[in-house]
Amino acid sequence: MSTKSDSTSVNMDHEGCSIRKVMVELHSIPRVSIEDEFHDFVTEYLSLRRKREMWASMGDKEQKLRWLQRMYARTKRA
């Protein structure tokens, strides 16, 4: 079940938190490749609005990337 905070309605996105804007920023990080499993995880992970809002609050791109890498590592341990 989806909640309003996780819906994909653009009208509910905070500034800079749309899927398009988040993906553009993600793809601007040189070490991120659309050819790997990490990218697959990130696209699914950031499909949730609350995760995109967290992404936007993480600081610079390097901090954002490290945060996503930690979230990815958690899924591998589970």
Results as ranks from 00 to 15, higher is better:
residue 23 M to V: 13
residue 23 M to R: 11
residue 23 M to W: 05
residue 24 V to K: 10
residue 24 V to H: 05
residue 25 E to Y: 02
residue 25 E to L: 06
residue 26 L to Y: 07
residue 27 H to S: 11
residue 28 S to F: 08
residue 28 S to T: 14
residue 28 S to C: 13
residue 28 S to Y: 08
residue 29 I to A: 05
residue 29 I to V: 15
residue 29 I to Y: 13
residue 29 I to N: 04
residue 29 I to T: 08
residue 30 P to Q: 04
residue 30 P to H: 04
residue 30 P to V: 02
residue 30 P to I: 04
residue 31 R to T: 12
residue 31 R to A: 10
residue 32 V to H: 06
residue 32 V to C: 05
residue 32 V to P: 05
residue 33 S to F: 10
residue 33 S to M: 09
residue 33 S to A: 10
residue 34 I to S: 11
residue 34 I to R: 12
residue 34 I to M: 12
residue 34 I to D: 07
residue 34 I to H: 09
residue 35 E to G: 02
residue 35 E to N: 09
residue 35 E to I: 00
residue 36 D to M: 03
residue 36 D to E: 05
residue 37 E to D: 15
residue 37 E to I: 05
residue 37 E to M: 05
residue 37 E to F: 04
residue 37 E to Q: 09
residue 38 F to C: 07
residue 38 F to N: 03
residue 38 F to V: 03
residue 40 D to R: 13
residue 40 D to H: 11
residue 40 D to T: 14
residue 42 V to Y: 06
residue 42 V to G: 04
residue 42 V to E: 05
residue 43 T to C: 15
residue 43 T to V: 15
residue 43 T to Q: 13
residue 43 T to D: 07
residue 43 T to E: 13
residue 43 T to K: 14
residue 43 T to S: 12
residue 44 E to A: 08
residue 44 E to K: 10
residue 44 E to C: 07
residue 44 E to T: 10
residue 44 E to V: 10
residue 45 Y to R: 12
residue 45 Y to W: 09
residue 45 Y to Q: 10
residue 46 L to E: 07
residue 46 L to K: 02
residue 46 L to I: 09
residue 46 L to A: 04
residue 47 S to A: 12
residue 47 S to T: 08
residue 47 S to G: 14
residue 48 L to D: 11
residue 48 L to F: 14
residue 48 L to M: 12
residue 48 L to V: 09
residue 49 R to T: 04
residue 49 R to M: 01
residue 49 R to L: 02
residue 50 R to H: 11
residue 50 R to Q: 08
residue 50 R to Y: 09
residue 50 R to M: 03
residue 51 K to M: 15
residue 51 K to F: 13
residue 51 K to Q: 15
residue 51 K to V: 06
residue 51 K to T: 09
residue 52 R to T: 01
residue 53 E to P: 01
residue 53 E to I: 03
residue 53 E to D: 07
residue 53 E to F: 00
residue 53 E to H: 02
residue 54 M to L: 11
residue 54 M to D: 05
residue 54 M to R: 09
residue 54 M to T: 12
residue 54 M to I: 07
residue 55 W to E: 00
residue 55 W to F: 15
residue 55 W to Y: 15
residue 55 W to T: 00
residue 56 A to Q: 11
residue 56 A to Y: 02
residue 57 S to Y: 03
residue 57 S to F: 02
residue 57 S to L: 09
residue 57 S to Q: 13
residue 57 S to A: 14
residue 58 M to V: 03
residue 58 M to C: 14
residue 58 M to Y: 08
residue 58 M to I: 05
residue 58 M to E: 14
residue 59 G to T: 05
residue 59 G to K: 04
residue 60 D to L: 02
residue 60 D to R: 00
residue 61 K to N: 15
residue 61 K to Y: 02
residue 62 E to N: 14
residue 62 E to K: 12
residue 62 E to A: 11
residue 62 E to C: 06
residue 62 E to S: 13
residue 63 Q to G: 00
residue 63 Q to S: 12
residue 63 Q to Y: 00
residue 63 Q to H: 07
residue 63 Q to V: 00
residue 63 Q to L: 03
residue 63 Q to A: 13
